[in-house]
Simulated scan of single mutants.
Amino acid sequence: MPIDAAKALAAEPRSAEISWTPKDVQLYHLGVGAGANPDRRSPATDPDELRYTLESRLHVLPSFATVAGAGSPGVISGLSMPGVDVDLARVLHGGQSLALHRPIPTEGTATATARVAAVYDKGKAAILVLRTEVADAEGPLWTNDAQIFVRGEGGWGGDRGPSTRLDPPSGEPDRTVERTVREDQALLYRLSGDWNPLHADPEFAKRAGFDRPILHGLCTYGITLKAVVDTLLGGDVGRVRAYGTRFAGVVFPGETLRIRMWRQGDATVRVSVTAVEREDAPVLADTLVEHS
């Protein structure tokens, strides 16, 4: 079997030094739609967007943690960990969770330590949980968990893992916004370090079962968090404490995302994301933003 769960879990963590600059942060923000003001004011001068695009006002959207220090231990390198040998065309990103220990600085150097934290047997597929913990000289910065769905690699009788499904949100959402995905969004986003050809190469996308390249799930993840921060958190990225989602469907460049938000108590926002042009087909589900 290409996945040896025992070997993967026993493998030594991989550590690497990572660094990032304001330019990296700005490029990521552009990759998740910053500067494209939905109210059609000039994105070059809108002060709300300048917080993402102008170095003198720059703050860091917490989902930047998923790409910081491109080339650090992460999803692609995790697929080459001991005990893991899979065909990239069989791989889908199943979910992502992020815990922030403090706000991410606009520039920094840190150590990223990655390991396989869990391997689950879903019958027709396996799920790898790849955990990356990042700390700088001042202490922990963030912890990322990527849930990687590998088709055709289950069925060895292993632990199925916990259920992450949540009950559907009740009542009308507190806010609903729409965000248009640019036709070149995936090509721009991949410059932050996710080079999976699924998002750029039509022939590779066909091998993976898609008519054309799809948007990175983590791009949708960033677009969604930005919408929540801008809409319900007063534009204050420092209020985000944790953010998790399950990738429930694909997004194609050029589509429109409908982002529905429900306040749950004083510290949680529940979110659902659908594709407008495909009759509200689910895109992100079981999505929570925890905040101060």
Rank of each mutant, 00 (worst) to 15 (best):
D4W: 02
A6F: 00
A8P: 00
L9A: 02
P13K: 09
R14K: 15
I18C: 06
T21K: 12
P22Q: 05
Q26E: 13
H29I: 06
L30Q: 04
L30T: 02
L30S: 06
G31N: 11
G35H: 06
S42L: 06
D48V: 10
L54A: 13
L54V: 07
E55G: 07
E55C: 03
R57F: 09
H59M: 10
V60M: 06
L61N: 14
A68D: 01
G69L: 05
G74M: 01
S80E: 12
P82G: 08
P82Q: 10
G83L: 10
D87C: 07
L92Q: 01
L92K: 08
G94K: 08
A99D: 14
E107N: 05
A112Q: 02
A118L: 03
K122L: 08
I127C: 02
L128Y: 00
E133K: 02
V134G: 00
E138P: 06
E138S: 15
P140L: 11
W142Y: 15
W142E: 02
D145C: 08
I148D: 00
I148P: 14
R151K: 14
G158N: 04
S163W: 03
R165T: 14
R165A: 15
L166K: 11
P168E: 15
P173R: 01
T176L: 07
E178W: 02
D194V: 09
P197G: 08
D201P: 14
F204E: 07
A205S: 11
A208C: 11
A208H: 05
F210L: 13
D211A: 15
G217L: 12
C219S: 15
C219L: 06
C219H: 09
Y221V: 06
A227D: 07
V228Q: 07
T231E: 14
G234L: 05
R241F: 03
Y243V: 12
F247G: 01
V251G: 06
P253L: 05
G254R: 06
T256I: 03
T268K: 12
T274M: 04
S292M: 01
S292G: 14
